[in-house]
């Protein structure tokens, strides 16, 4: 265990833990857009930055992203120092210029008193804030179907060559993790479309309810050794089937005991 100081309060933390986890455990609200427990931290949104110092740093301090900074003994952390707040305001202001229609950006900016951007709105600005959550989640799944392409201000998230991604299994993890709900997808008539690729949805053998995509089911069979027949019926029908077989056991047991 390591003892650190957050906003004047002494706090215990596990060795190797990232600062953001410790700060949030203290119920201190610090904003973050790219942080998600499911994926590796990447530090692209810069909102979770905090000011750190130590007693022996002679009054010198530095600004670090708390999602990527492992706790160190005797660290003194301020999560809302004037400079940090100023920095967050600027970043949110920049976000608002890029994605003025995003609700989460509007809400976060409003919390820091910004309702209108100080800058010029980016022409054709969209709601993608380049947090890399989608690419990281895809990497975690082992698919790597999408990635960041191009450079600088023109950077976008896209499948290779802009074509329907060969490696995508249509699991929707990217769309679900996206903080601004920018990634579009659509389920219609037993088909799912995402990233320009169409997938067949598995139908329950009994009731016909649509579950996950055939590609994802096969991927789970292949990568995680899950029996293929598990994916043949939906969860509702599985419970009914379980009830039936349990019922038979119960009746048989009752008859034996008679």
């Amino acid at each position: 265990m390591v003892t650190i100081q957050i906003n004047g309060k002494l706090v215990q933390a596990e060795k190797g833990e990232m600062l953001i986890a410790v700060i949030r455990r203290q119920r201190i609200d610090i904003p973050a857009l790219c942080h998600h427990d499911a994926v590796e931290p990447c530090g692209s949104c810069r909102l979770c930055m905090v000011e750190i110092t130590k007693k022996d740093w002679d009054g010198w301090s530095k600004f670090v992203t708390s999602c990527l900074y492992p706790v160190e003994p005797d660290l003194i952390v301020s999560t809302h120092s004037p400079r940090v707040v100023e920095l967050r305001k600027t970043i949110l202001d920049l976000y608002l210029a890029r994605s003025p229609k995003s609700e989460i950006i509007q809400r976060m900016a409003a919390e820091y008193g910004i309702t209108q951007t100080s800058y010029q709105e980016v022409p054709d600005g969209d709601n993608c804030i380049m947090c890399y959550a989608c690419t990281r989640v895809c990497e975690e799944l082992g698919c790597n179907a999408i990635s960041a392409v191009q450079r600088g201000h023109k950077k976008i998230i896209a499948p290779p060559l802009g074509e329907p991604p060969v490696d995508c299994v249509g699991c929707l993890s990217c769309a679900n993790i996206c903080p601004t709900h920018f990634i579009e997808w659509n389920d219609d008539n037993g088909k799912r479309t995402i990233w320009g690729k169409q997938f067949e949805l598995v139908s329950c053998k009994i009731c016909g309810k649509k579950t996950i995509t055939r590609d994802f089911a096969e991927y789970l069979v292949r990568k995680r050794n899950i029996p293929a027949n598990y994916f043949e019926i939906c969860d509702d029908c599985k419970r009914t089937e379980l009830t039936k077989s349990m019922g038979k056991i119960v009746i048989a047991a009752q008859e034996i005991s008679k």
Binding site: T211, F216, Y230, F231
Partner: peptide, 22 residues
Amino acid sequence: LDLNRCVKCMACVAACPFGCAL
């Protein structure tokens, strides 16, 4: 289930043989 780590990919819902992940 740690909801902070869940991205709602529905793998567990589909994989549970007894239909008990909902």
